[in-house]
Design a protein around this nucleic acid. Structure first.
Lengths: 137, 137
DNA sequence: ATTAACTCTACTAATTATATAGAATTAATT
DNA sequence: AATTAATTCTATATAATTAGTAGAGTTAAT
């Protein structure tokens, strides 16, 4: 499941992607437009900025805007930024790999092999869903 | 990601599925054989029993054994039993549906529509992975 | 009666999720 | 230069969940 943070991030990105080219949205606009608690949203936007998905302009008349194209921002990206690994166990993860503490023979672990399959399939689907593709639906 | 509970459940089922037909495994056997904390495993086996995946024999010489065929127990089943919804948000879930509190127009929610797609794809893959198929790998 | 297994309920400790608060910084405008 | 309105940063709070432990009770074979 997605955390609220990840869900709010997606909603905020969808909001930004639907503004006119060059428009700069205030946090308050996004908060009201997408129904996200403002102070929580502030943190989320900062994380999206550190992830280079959005950028911001400071001071009066400042705000946020998409840095990447809406078709380049995938569900996989946002999941990884806010909720971490896409794989079902860390031992099967590409970007968040960690060995299981209870596992003695990872290379022969049949559970892990199954989860590698799932990870590849899931990743394929999640990479294919972008902010742009969501708007079209 | 899977919880430890779900991972341990899968490992316990894999252990049981690899015993000889008719063999009854003590909790201690499974705990040692699959490297799972015994007291924690007790709870997990009870949940698996309530889910009708395993059954047990009480008293001395008692223990656990598979109730369903190893090819009928899917990853989707175990995920749902221990970790709940497979969908990325409750509003996109078949078995654990709940509306989003921050959503006003679910039927037009583009995020939800995208997540329905993912859910269907993920489910297809997860239903296809069974205890039996894992052993073969 | 004893032993050795499952069963059940409650509890605990650590972590994570979901925010909120408030001061600091930045930049446009008056 | 002062004011205003925005982002930025750090800290804190609180609630829920996770991961596991403890211990008493029940069952059935010997």
């Amino acid at each position: 499941m997605l955390s609220h943070k990840a869900k709010y991030a997606l909603k905020a990105l969808l909001y930004l992607a639907q503004q006119e080219e060059g428009f700069i949205a205030k946090t308050m606009d996004i908060s009201q437009g997408a129904n996200i608690p403002k102070k929580f949203l502030e943190q989320i936007l900062l994380e999206l900025k550190r992830g280079h998905f959005v950028s911001s302009k400071q001071g009066k008349l400042g705000g946020y805007y998409l840095l990447k194209s809406k078709n380049e921002i995938t569900l996989a990206d946002i999941h990884r930024l806010f909720d971490g690994a896409i794989a079902l166990l860390p031992c099967a993860s590409l970007n968040f790999y960690e060995p299981c503490s209870d596992c003695t023979t990872e290379s022969e672990c049949s559970l892990r092999l199954g989860l590698l399959t799932i990870r590849d399939e899931t990743l394929k689907v999640m990479k294919n869903i972008t902010i742009g593709s969501l708007i079209k639906k």
